[in-house]
Design a protein around this nucleic acid. Structure first.
Lengths: 342, 342
DNA sequence: CTTTAGCACTCATAAACAGAGAGTGCTAAG
DNA sequence: CTTAGCACTCTCTGTTTATGAGTGCTAAAG
């Protein structure tokens, strides 16, 4: 697998970069012309034939050029990929974006804006998973009475995520008692991460306050929902960008992807399961069948050294890997700061 | 314009219903076969020729069948459209949905679910505009201190919409002073609609509290943003449904629509400007050029007899108007109750 | 005067076909 | 081991041809 001669590597690299640019099968001739390898077309032809045998290239049909196979892209990404090539323009654009993001206060806005920026910069489709409630720490809880029977529970966590819910008040409770319950809960829950709450802790609380079950259970339900699916929302950017890719001129393919985009939960899953740091999944490495001819590059962002969310870019397997990777790295690392400040 | 002979109307109706079903130009022959008009193809041919002259039908090319023109659809919708035809299945499905919606507490969830239901039932794309903050009345405001320098402003309105924002506290303020300001604001703003606040009222408040400008301006900014674009978010459902329509097999068209879908503000505008009750806009009646071969059916929903939001369904001009209209009416009227209960 | 049958004509769509071009694989020579 | 040459393959494009649905017109029938 690793035993590719230097020359084969150079040729593979040429094929991949050429195909990434043109989206057309690349022939021996055009390589010997465009890349300074000082080899004749015939030699390259032989090498390409070998590379096909080894599984790095494929032929759409006899007597067409070669295109990289999934394995070919994998090798390219792991070993051959050139350095990023961001233009100065793009870098200043990035810098501008960062100062703008810095100013925003609402997490939703930040997430959405991030998605947009990612898609504009890369001209692929971007996915951004908002900070996950259940990874963040409980900070404070407040009860705002609305009228005789209703009150607003406000839950504040360390990622600046604020969750609220109107609940019904048992009429038997005096405002004093209410305050007691709230401050008791605040005391008990302070600093815990939401996901750690579910099991033992909540049961204990429940028995402590067994007299107030009614009220409590509503609050706990809010906690529970938050920890379950609630906040795992994925924001998309540039969904129409995929249509610019020649590999998606087929309406059926588009339909598959669009319906995938509508199923938030599956997207959430993909992003949640992405490993820490930058991860690159090519074609069928993606587990989601609809994405089997796409590549997905993701990165996580952290809060207090714990990954709380992820950003990603999806494009055809013929994707500008190095470019996207550097952009994603920049944005993810910056997002760390932005989230920290909330 | 209104002077269409009875027979012409029957034929026009036949053409429209046929075309709605088949999406193919319909010829004189198939009408005399499929519809019991007791007229020969030739007669129908003559009538159709007249209808074309009058602008109700068009021919894609000589010697093809006719398809309804925009004017044709308009006449159909205004005068010819048959009664709704919901199956019993669909009605029970609707009933189920309603009980489910009733249970939800979070406005976002309700909106999103509504969008989904609308798109599933109609198999077109649905747009739902959440309740507009600026039409709703101010109810209460709270300040939750987070730490020495920061506090959370919570704004509660009568549509059950809750808006929050972290703001910086001027250190000079004691908690007593804070409370004073808050209760003063509550007093002054109670019952006002958000949109009425902007102009004179705010200026007055600003001068009243001129000493506390720093704090106040942040709060006011929150109010302002809410009244501006903030809450006018549109949720989409079934975006992939358009791909099932044969008129959208062209990738360019799809791209135009998808990019339109990404521009939330333009969609907001369309829904905001829809007149009270059910409105039907066919083709270029839509003002948005990207939608010039689509039709949009919208309905508003109310709170306290004021329209606060809208729902809509978008499909090709060849849309099942009567079906969609009844579905939309049902859902909108139900939404009135759901919103009321929040 | 209206309706209908008959017929020639039009036009899009599909299938069949030829030619061009790009690329390969193989063979033989450097 | 490299390269030039050549025959072969396969896609793509444009052209031609056939088919069929549908129209418009004319003339006869009601």
């Amino acid at each position: 697998m690793a035993g590719l001669s230097d020359r084969k590597q150079k040729i593979l690299q040429a094929v991949v970069t050429d195909y990434i640019q043109t989206a057309e099968p690349v022939g021996s001739r055009s390589i010997s012309r465009r890349y300074k390898l000082n080899l004749s077309a015939a030699t390259i032809r032989n090498e390409m034939s070998d590379l096909e045998e080894l599984g790095f290239l494929t032929q759409p049909h006899t007597s067409a050029g070669r295109i990289p196979s999934q394995q070919g892209y994998r090798f390219y990404v792991d070993a051959l990929m050139g350095p990023p090539n961001l233009t100065r323009q793009e870098e200043t654009y990035l810098a501008n974006v960062f100062t703008q993001l810095q100013k925003m206060r609402e997490i939703d806005q930040i997430i959405q804006q991030t998605a947009k920026v990612l898609s504009v910069l890369t001209s692929y489709t971007s996915l951004v998973l908002g900070p996950q409630f259940r990874h963040s720490a409980f900070k404070q809880m407040r009860l705002v009475p609305l009228d005789e029977q209703k009150a607003l529970v406000v839950l504040i966590t360390s990622v600046g995520h604020i969750k609220h819910r109107v609940i019904n008040l048992p009429q038997a409770l005096s405002s004093q008692e209410l305050n007691q319950i709230v401050s008791y809960l605040n005391e008990q829950l302070a600093g815990q991460t939401i996901e750690n709450l579910s099991a033992t802790r909540l049961r204990q609380l429940r028995s402590d306050l067994y007299a107030r079950i009614d009220l409590l259970s509503q609050v706990l339900q809010l906690l529970d929902e938050s920890s379950a699916d609630g906040e795992g929302r994925v924001f998309l950017g540039g969904t129409s960008n995929i249509l610019n890719q020649p590999e998606f001129k087929d309406v059926e393919k588009i339909k598959h992807l669009l319906t995938l985009f509508e199923e938030g939960s599956r997207l959430t899953f993909v992003l949640e399961t992405s490993s820490e740091g930058v991860s690159i999944r090519i074609g069928t490495e993606n587990a989601i069948t609809e994405m089997s001819d796409c590549s997905l590059i993701t990165a996580t962002y952290q809060l207090d050294n714990r990954p709380v969310g992820a950003i990603g870019v999806m494009g055809p397997t013929r994707m500008e890997y190095s470019r996207v990777i550097t952009i994603i790295e920049h944005i993810a690392s910056h997002l760390n700061f932005v989230v920290q400040d909330l």
